[in-house]
């Protein structure tokens, strides 16, 4: 039986193993590879998406878990006002290096600014500590969040 939920505003019905993680549902069943696989066990944040507006690790969230939920992914996050400011700030500061972690970083940062429009350094650390960047773009991620929040130095 298919499980229904919305992704970036469109309703999707996905049949298959309800234990399949949302990460692989997005990448394989819905042909949306923007959400990335880094660790598969909730340690790297590369797979971060929004579930009803909250950041979640899609590798740790099953198809069953998202029944009826509203999912937003990197492919459409820039259509939200905060997501738009974040992605523009990311481009302005040229945040990415290899770029592989950045979808997850942007999703976490957008969730942070939606919740806390003027985050402190501690807020940023707390919200972003779950997102690894192997290329170590952390200094620019922090600066880009501040720039988007209008709290930049």
């Amino acid at each position: 039986m298919a499980i229904s939920f919305t992704v970036n505003g469109s309703q999707r019905d996905v049949a298959g193993d309800p234990d399949k993680p949302l990460l692989w549902v997005l990448r394989e069943d819905l042909a949306m590879p923007g959400t990335k696989f880094g660790c598969g066990v909730g340690l790297c944040g590369a797979c971060t998406v929004h579930l009803d507006g909250a950041p979640i690790r899609s590798c740790q969230t099953t198809l069953r878990d998202v029944a009826g939920a509203r999912i937003t992914t990197i492919e459409a996050v820039a259509q939200t006002p905060v997501g738009k400011r974040i992605t523009q700030s990311w481009i302005a500061l040229d945040v990415p290096q290899c770029g592989y972690c950045q979808a997850g970083q942007i999703m976490s940062a957008t969730a942070l600014l939606t919740q806390t429009p003027k985050p402190t350094d501690d807020d940023i650390d707390a919200a972003m500590a779950g997102n690894l960047c192997r290329c170590s773009t952390y200094l620019r991620i922090r600066a880009a969040i501040k720039a988007a929040a209008g709290t930049g130095a």
Binding site: A31, M32, P33, G34, T35, K36, F37, T73, I74, E75, A78, T87, W90, I91, D94, V95, P96, Q97, G99, Y100, Q102, A103, I106
Partner: peptide
């Protein structure tokens, strides 16, 4: 000069080996 792929990365465009279908 900013990275040529930066806008595509930020948009979640498929770019990486893992993304190729």
């Amino acid at each position: 000069i900013k990275g040529v792929d930066t806008p595509a990365i930020v948009a979640g465009t498929p770019l990486f080996g893992i993304d190729l279908v």
